[in-house]
Design a protein around this nucleic acid. Structure first.
Lengths: 200, 200
DNA sequence: ACCTTTCTCTACCAAATGGTAGAGGAGAGA
DNA sequence: TCTCTCCTCTACCATTTGGTAGAGAAAGGT
């Protein structure tokens, strides 16, 4: 992983580029020629590694899910009560989003897919969801988080983090620019925002 | 407006359907044939009213911006201090999103467009943005809202509202279903979430 | 009755798209 | 050296896409 040098296996380079382009321009807005051209390879090489566009899409989605779940898993099971654990998770997701902006952009493509395609992905996530919901409920009972519907709360936090990480236009329109310093400030403000929203 | 009966002018029906399909499947994922077929008209009829797909896209985007700004303008200039005005605005946007779910979905397409296309739209919104930012700053000074960077705060609220209103998959994965009662509950939880996030 | 404008249609077209068929190069094992 | 597998290529195809050309129905003004 990491830098994905030119010498990386062709299949991996294709997957990386496809993830990037799908996330930036949408799945429908990205042709196999676009991907092949960016990788620097013929379209048929691409079709050798992934027998159809649908197959490529499937691989990209599962690989993305795996990468994001990996980023989430550690902090979620880490130490800390109340908001500390939420903060660690958010930081991890945010770091992943900064490292590869297209990752979260791709997550939003799920809304575009027919439900049957995304159902398996959602299945893969459901156990994580239930764990998170149960934990939220416990923290609320213990008075460490504001009492609310834990499922809706989860969606709201998700929407806030993914939204602000992907909706670059919304940030551009308020005059924000993506420098390193501004990114740190954005993360700090987001944490404060969510801290206020979640603490009792 | 309102129900958009079959007898509405063809150009309007095309615009409505195009907004819907662009918002649901993305601009790149919607062909002129899709739109024409849904409207129940030949593709060339569509090209008579809008000379090219780009022209149609432009019309759809500006019409959407107008409709959303109209929904926002009243509550923004309404009475009430502190969170009351924010709440009225959010309710208005949320009502618009429920009435036409594709509206906000379309807003997210802006990220996909090349910057030059969206620049004019952002220009049209910039005065509203500045008004909102100035008001937020005033309320913070007066101690009626939590002190924070008003521009980033605006983006965070935007991301939360638009995200939760459009990211149906995120709600589906936590077992939420779009009934009337659940929609009311969702709005209530969202308001509470934002109230906690914004009040000092 | 006639003409003009408005609107929608059928019939095409060139480019792009996802995909197939199969040739050919490079390396490893015999 | 021969062959076998792995990998990438050129050449081609059917479908879809955005778009053009122009015919024809309907309606109003004269």
């Amino acid at each position: 992983m990491g830098f994905m040098a030119q010498s990386a296996p062709t299949a991996d380079r294709i997957l990386t580029v496809a993830t990037d382009l799908f996330g930036r321009h949408g799945i429908a807005g990205t042709s196999l020629d676009d991907i092949a051209g960016t990788v620097g390879v013929a379209k048929q090489t691409l079709l050798y590694w992934y027998p159809s566009k649908d197959a490529l899409i499937g691989k990209v989605l599962t690989a993305t899910a795996v990468e994001l779940l990996y980023a989430i898993d550690k902090p979620v099971r880490g130490a800390g009560d109340g908001f500390a654990r939420v903060e660690a998770t958010i930081n991890s997701v945010f770091a992943a989003a900064v490292r590869r902006p297209s990752l979260l952009g791709l997550v939003r493509e799920l809304n575009r897919l027919d439900t049957s395609t995304s159902d398996q992905l959602l299945d893969a996530m459901s156990s994580h969801i239930e764990t998170a919901v149960a934990w939220l409920e416990g923290e609320m009972q213990a008075g460490r988080l504001r009492k609310a519907d834990p499922r809706i709360l989860l969606s709201l936090v998700y929407a806030t983090v993914v939204g602000v990480a992907t909706e670059t236009e919304a940030l551009r329109v308020v005059g924000w620019e993506p420098t390193v310093g501004n990114l740190r400030k954005l993360r700090r403000e987001m944490i404060e925002f969510l801290r206020a929203a979640l603490l009792p």
